[in-house]
């Protein structure tokens, strides 16, 4: 082994160690836990079973929760994309002070802690909160709106916090598109919509792709927002998993649910990657 190769290995060591200790070990532990039997005096038993997986797969309730998590994550991702694209467009055209201000505004949802942000939503949307008070005061509504503890509010709050993850990569991609390409398309007869559809949108895909993956993965795994704003009536996969781990202390079942969620997420990401591979290959030039 040359000196250079040894040095490279040495430099890689901290990262490898970190990933091993904080990712490989816990996941192995989790997988192992998911095959253990339930215990009566401890959170898990001594022998092994595949029973938790067959129970999850055969019980409609778990399917329903999984589906709710998936639909919510998809909806959040889609709304994030729709909200973020125009913002990213404006950002990509901004320079100097305006650009700095836009970056600060975009990053602002991330500057508050997760609890503060969600309690903020709770206060604002409460039955006698400022939003309802204002609407009542203005005479726009007659009875206070029930916003808190609805799935709609969960989606709204997740979109709010995940928009930066969509805006920033799309902004980057848009900045990389030479303005001459748009001029070229217009000289060939394209109107603004056609130039957007045929040139800008496909060429911004290298920004859309990471944005979509990031927001989807973050929202399907989000715990605090659904737990605080979704109320007691509906469960999402993360809230259900935490309930099994911390509430009923059925660690093997909770682990199995976590593994199912991770696998489903991975399948979604892989499917999206495969479906868009050709577009990605073309637009990356």
């Amino acid at each position: 082994m040359t000196r250079g190769a040894r040095l490279r290995l040495l430099l890689a060591l901290p990262a490898v160690a970190l990933i091993f200790v904080f990712m490989v070990l816990p996941i192995t532990n989790m997988v192992e836990m998911s095959f253990r039997t339930l215990g009566t005096t401890a959170p898990f038993g001594d022998s092994y079973t595949t029973g938790h997986y067959s129970r999850i797969l055969s019980d409609g309730y778990y399917w329903q929760v999984l589906l709710r998590s998936l639909v919510t994550a998809l909806l959040v991702t889609l709304l994030c994309l729709l909200v973020s694209y125009p913002i990213a467009w404006h950002m990509s055209k901004a320079h100097g002070f305006k650009a700095v201000m836009l970056y600060a505004l975009i990053a602002s949802p991330l500057m508050t802690g997760v609890l503060v942000r969600n309690f903020g939503w709770m206060i604002v949307t409460a039955l006698n909160g400022p939003l309802n008070e204002t609407l009542l005061g203005l005479g726009i509504i007659e009875r206070p709106l029930r916003l808190l503890f609805t799935q709609g509010l969960v989606v709204l709050a997740l979109v709010h916090v995940f928009v930066p993850f969509m805006v920033l990569p799309i902004n980057n991609a848009l900045r990389n598109i030479p303005p001459a390409l748009v001029e070229a398309s217009s000289s060939m007869g394209a109107n603004r919509w056609q130039a957007f559809r045929d040139v800008i949108l496909p060429l911004s895909f290298p920004g859309i792709y990471p944005g979509v993956i990031l927001v989807f993965v973050l929202s399907i795994a989000a715990y605090v927002t659904p737990a605080l704003l979704g109320g007691q009536m509906v469960s999402y996969m993360p809230t259900l998993i935490v309930a099994e781990l911390n509430g009923t202390f059925r660690w093997p079942l909770g682990s199995a649910l976590a593994i199912v969620l991770a696998v489903v997420t991975l399948i979604c990401v892989a499917a999206f990657t495969l479906l868009t591979a050709k577009l990605m290959e073309k637009s990356r030039a």
Binding site: P178, A180, E183, A184, V199, L203, S283, A285
Partner: peptide
């Protein structure tokens, strides 16, 4: 009009 650009401005995709 036909326009030819300095950096060609071909559509890379």
């Amino acid at each position: 009009f036909g326009v030819v650009f300095q950096n060609y401005a071909l559509f890379p995709h």
